[in-house]
């Protein structure tokens, strides 16, 4: 069941094409990563979903129906360029945005109290936004985006400008929002965040959707039959045992232990169980596991076109 679908979206500007026939499907209750290098078209995609940018062709479906302004007013949107009224007080401002999203002042205050404590902002309630650091202002804007507990949340580059501690806090909050039933779409070029929190991704490069799928499925699909073997003994020992079935890529002795860690690449047509049986029979083996490519590797290889 998809909460949001983009079908064949194309957007051209006078000098370049920002999106060329891009389709995505966002499953309900997932954390969906929109990945891609700078200038790939991620923000345009998000602005098309929000109806800020009108696409030249293609359409957006929300819950299976063409998206309306009313749907937009229900979702939570965090734009890439953060916008808050500089002179306005933090608390008043958060209440203002919450009321525009339909919360009562009373309800907004109750929920904001909770969020401000969680984000350690409670002392800043009566300060002007211009007094906040960039990171704090981003936290305030993040809270304003999620406060009305929308079914769909869209964050454009939510981690930019956060230190690792706060980025981590943000990741935890995103996962918590998903666990509470929300669907989260976010764009990023920061791959380290993807594996930890994304369920699904779409990789956009040069205005095209070049890769889509669930994270586990992609990593499996692009696995290359590489395994890591940990055993007791020298490198030669390994070569003698599985040399006929696999190629030894690298070999490294673990310091202060009797163990050696090696990466082997199985030759074509060799069954994994045969390789394990061979190692098990001839080596004092401690572990044998598959090495899956990191999303970062997939990302780089996909962008470079070497998948």
């Amino acid at each position: 069941m998809y909460i949001l679908q983009a079908e064949n979206v194309t957007k051209r500007y006078s000098e370049h094409t920002a999106l060329d026939n891009v389709s995505i499907q966002v499953p309900k209750g997932s954390v969906y990563g929109l990945l891609g290098p700078n200038g790939a078209g991620k923000s345009t995609m998000i602005r098309v979903i929000n109806r800020i940018t009108i696409p030249d062709s293609g359409r957006i479906l929300f819950d299976g129906k063409p998206i309306t302004d009313e749907d937009i007013y229900k979702i939570g949107y965090l734009p890439e360029e953060r916008g808050l009224y500089k002179k306005m007080k933090v608390g008043e401002q958060a209440i203002f945005f919450a009321r525009l999203k339909g919360l009562s002042r009373k309800e907004a205050i109750v929920r904001l109290r909770e969020w401000f404590i969680r984000f350690d902002l409670q002392d800043w309630w009566n300060r002007a936004v211009e007094d906040l650091s960039k990171g704090m202002a981003q936290k305030v804007q993040f809270i304003s985006t999620v406060l009305h507990e929308p079914k769909l949340l869209i964050f454009d580059e939510p981690f930019s400008g956060f230190d690792p501690i706060n980025a981590n806090l943000l990741k935890q909050e995103i996962l918590r929002l998903r666990d509470n039933g929300a669907t989260v779409i976010f764009s990023t070029h920061n791959m380290s965040s993807v594996e930890e929190i994304c369920d699904h991704i779409t990789l956009i490069n040069k205005s095209h959707n070049i890769l889509s799928g669930s994270v586990g499925e992609l990593r499996h699909r692009f696995g290359e039959n590489i395994f890591m073997v940990t055993y007791q003994g020298e490198e030669e020992l390994l070569k003698q045992s599985v040399g006929s079935l696999a190629e030894v890529l690298d070999c490294r002795k673990q310091e202060d232990t009797p163990y050696t860690v090696a990466r082997i690449s199985l030759k074509d047509g060799v069954a994994v169980r045969d390789a394990i049986a061979k190692c098990n029979a001839e080596l004092d083996m401690r572990s044998f596991q598959e090495v899956q490519p990191s999303m970062n590797e997939i990302f780089i290889r996909a962008v470079e076109g070497t998948l």
């Binding site: 929000n50 800020i52 302004d69 937009i72 007013y73 979702i75 949107y77 734009p79 360029e81 953060r82 916008g83 808050l84 009224y85 500089k86 945005f97 525009l100 999203k101 804007q141 304003s144 985006t145």
Partner: peptide, 15 residues
């Protein structure tokens, strides 16, 4: 509002 992109947030809340 336009320059600081507050407008992007606002239009996702009101016409």
């Amino acid at each position: 509002e336009k320059g600081s992109r507050i407008i992007d947030v606002l239009v996702s809340s009101a016409t």
